[in-house]
């Protein structure tokens, strides 16, 4: 059974088409990174999963149940760290977690949960005085109540310092090792690549890619960029390089040539340049960064 199953989900707010037919399946036990620039439809997708907003068309199923009609049953087994939430400023951290415990009808120790998210020394403080990072930790503690089968984390790293982000990743890993499915959204690829089995990229309300990080790398193009310094650069030499098999693109900037190509083609590129009369002074190989990869998917091409 899939943990999350979206089929042709569409949602408009007035004239704005936030989701234009999203199809997505997240398997049970998977850690899934949901990526996209701000305003691409990440939160709207999550809001449909949680029944905060209702899809105009298409179906959304979570843990085998309809996300709208069976929403309470879905949320009984799901832990949520929502995006853009507020806390009850007059209630303490403990009272927040107790409210989640009462709501989920479980019998857990609020202090242990708060300890786990690093709020052990703020248990009885009013949440009104919390920093963004502390509020984020508090909501994470509430999300962990009842040992959920699915964790939905919407931009969980916002407001967290690097240390907090690392602790968050640890908790995600621990939960995943326990068999929990994790659905993790972010607009920063670096935050998901370390923990996610697969990622999906959304842009303008459409999923443009769903794959593992390695898979995405292959899809975007060859794995690396060859940067070659030459002493002179005859046009013939460039044409010869472009004609080679395994070469996706060549850009020349003065005496610097950037060739994106497959790893196998590197030697052939150097050879072709030498043969074409361009004396190679120096060269290096750069692996295309994931940021470039992400940009390649999310910027207009």
């Amino acid at each position: 059974m899939a943990a999350i199953e979206l089929n042709g989900v569409e949602k408009s707010f007035g004239d704005v088409r936030a989701l234009r037919g999203v199809d997505l399946t997240v398997e049970e036990g998977e850690v899934f990174g949901f990526l996209g620039p701000n305003g691409a439809g990440k939160s709207t997708t999550i809001n449909v999963l949680l029944d905060f907003v209702r899809a105009d068309s298409g179906t959304a199923r979570v843990l085998g149940r309809d996300a709208h009609h069976d929403s309470v049953a879905v949320r009984e087994r799901t832990g949520v760290l929502p995006e853009g939430f507020g806390v009850y400023s007059r209630l303490s951290a403990r009272e927040h977690v107790e409210f989640a415990i009462d709501s989920k009808e479980t019998d857990q120790n609020p202090e242990q949960l708060l300890e786990r998210v690093g709020l052990g020394d703020a248990v009885d403080r009013n949440a009104g005085g919390f920093s963004t990072g502390m509020k984020q930790r508090l909501a994470l503690a509430m999300a962990l109540v009842g040992d959920p089968e699915l964790l939905v984390l919407d931009e969980p790293s916002s407001g967290l310092d690097p240390n907090g982000a690392r602790e968050l990743r640890e908790i995600v890993r621990e939960e995943a090792d326990d068999g929990t499915t994790v659905f993790f959204s972010s607009h920063i690829l670096g935050q998901v690549e370390a923990v996610c089995d697969r990622v999906g990229i959304i842009r303008d309300g459409e999923l443009v890619a769903v794959d593992s990080i390695d898979g995405l790398r292959d899809t975007v193009g060859s794995g690396s960029t060859l940067v070659v310094e030459v002493e002179s650069l005859p046009d013939d030499a460039v044409d010869a390089v472009i004609a080679l098999e395994g070469v996706d693109g060549v850009t020349a900037d003065g005496n610097t040539l950037r060739v994106s190509c497959s790893d196998d083609a590197k030697t052939a590129v150097i050879g072709a340049l030498e043969d074409g009369g361009a004396a190679v002074a120096d060269f290096e190989t750069k692996e295309s960064s994931l940021e470039e990869l992400f940009a390649a998917y999310t910027e207009e091409r």
Binding site: D51, V72, R75, F85, G86, Y88, H96, S103
Partner: peptide
């Protein structure tokens, strides 16, 4: 308006 509704409805409440 303060966003606590999201916290509230993240929990299993009808």
């Amino acid at each position: 308006e303060t966003g606590t509704m999201k916290l509230l409805l993240s929990l299993p409440h009808d």
